[in-house]
């Protein structure tokens, strides 16, 4: 099975490195207006690690995911996967690249062509990558990969997408990715359209895959979901990273005002908004009127993500980085 080959890889191997990438969409009549969707973003996803990318809608999460999947051109500096710059890949090379990097998208119903059976997503992989594999062996391979996502082949094969539930459809898409030897999975809001009762199954599945050595970029706007599985949290606002680090640091001790405001808006069970707000306000009391970033780099000359050049993040504590508190693009504090 595909996933077993991942297990042998060394633990903290660097898998995907995003280094100062940006994306500007041209919008308006004649593409006259610039819309910076991603600005100077750097982070990395290691093998066996789930990185949650969190931000409100329009913050550039999908755009970043699409850049990694090469569905969108990469501008700015580079994205490297296993040390190789992916931005120049064309046809052949791109096809090989998709052997090791795959994605699953937000809307399970629009991820399937409604007029074909759902298992077409498997046969597409077979036609393109495993043309020489014989039918019986392919069936075994598909069955094994369905089993890995805890689906039984009888239950889901030979059915149309509308005959399957959202959770089943999303799991089939993950199984599809597992047919290839993937090292990195980009999961873009894959559970936001699912019912609570199936959501958690998909989350648990991601956690299991991670344990087998897969690197996962988990994109979401829901902080509680991001926290449940992730090893690293990246908070994005208007295309910029405002805070990044271990989830318990970021959620337990949010430094940036934006992270705090996100946290106070999450609807939580057992804790009402007012209470969360009061607690967080108390926690951040010592930070009013300060800016950790500019305390550390008074001239705004701190290191950029991985290399030192332009300023973005300051290390506030071990494994916890924060941007200038004013950072929403234009002004600095």
């Amino acid at each position: 099975m595909a996933t077993t080959s991942l297990a042998g890889k060394p633990e903290a191997e660097r898998c995907c490195t995003v280094d100062r990438v940006s994306m500007v969409y041209k919008i308006g009549a004649f593409g006259g207006t610039d819309l910076p969707a991603v600005r100077d973003v750097s982070f990395e996803v290691r093998a066996g690690e789930v990185v949650s990318l969190i931000g409100e809608s329009g913050s550039g999460k999908t755009t970043l995911g699409k850049m990694i999947l090469r569905l969108c051109p990469i501008t700015g500096e580079t994205i490297t996967v296993d040390g190789v710059d992916i931005s120049t890949f064309k046809r052949r090379r791109l096809k090989t690249y998709y052997r090791s990097v795959q994605g699953v998208f937000q809307d399970p119903f629009s991820s399937y062509n409604p007029i074909f059976k759902a298992d077409r997503v498997f046969s597409m992989i077979k036609d393109e990558y495993f043309a020489e594999v014989n039918a019986a062996e392919w069936r075994r391979k598909v069955a094994a990969s369905l089993e890995a996502v805890r689906l039984s082949p009888d239950e889901v094969l030979n059915k149309y997408p509308h005959q399957l539930s959202g959770g089943q459809l999303q799991r089939i898409l993950i199984a599809r990715a597992l047919l290839l030897d993937i090292r990195l999975l980009v999961a873009d809001e894959i559970i936001s359209m699912l019912d609570a009762s199936t959501r958690i199954d998909v989350l648990n599945l991601l956690a299991d895959l991670k344990a087998q050595g897969l690197g996962i970029l988990f994109i979401t706007h829901d902080l509680s979901l991001g926290n449940y599985v992730s090893d690293k949290t990246v908070i994005l606002r208007r295309g910029r990273i405002v805070e990044m680090g271990a989830p318990d640091r970021v959620f337990g001790n949010p430094l940036h005002p934006y992270t705090k405001s996100l946290l106070t808006s999450v609807p939580q069970l057992h804790r009402k908004w007012e209470r969360v707000e009061a607690e967080l306000a108390a926690g951040r009391a010592g930070l009013t009127g300060r800016c950790i970033y500019h305390e550390r780099y008074p001239n705004g000359d701190g290191p950029v993500g991985l290399d030192a050049e332009r300023p973005t993040l300051a290390e506030a504590e071990d494994d916890h980085f924060v941007a200038c508190f004013q950072a929403d693009g234009e002004e600095t504090c």
Binding site: I200, L203, N204, A207, S224, P247, Q268
Partner: peptide, 19 residues
């Protein structure tokens, strides 16, 4: 239904929820 909802602070490693 209630017990399948992840909360802020709950981590997979500590407490595996079920659907």
């Amino acid at each position: 239904l209630i017990s399948s909802l992840p909360e802020v602070g709950v981590k997979y490693a500590d407490k595996r929820l079920t659907g």
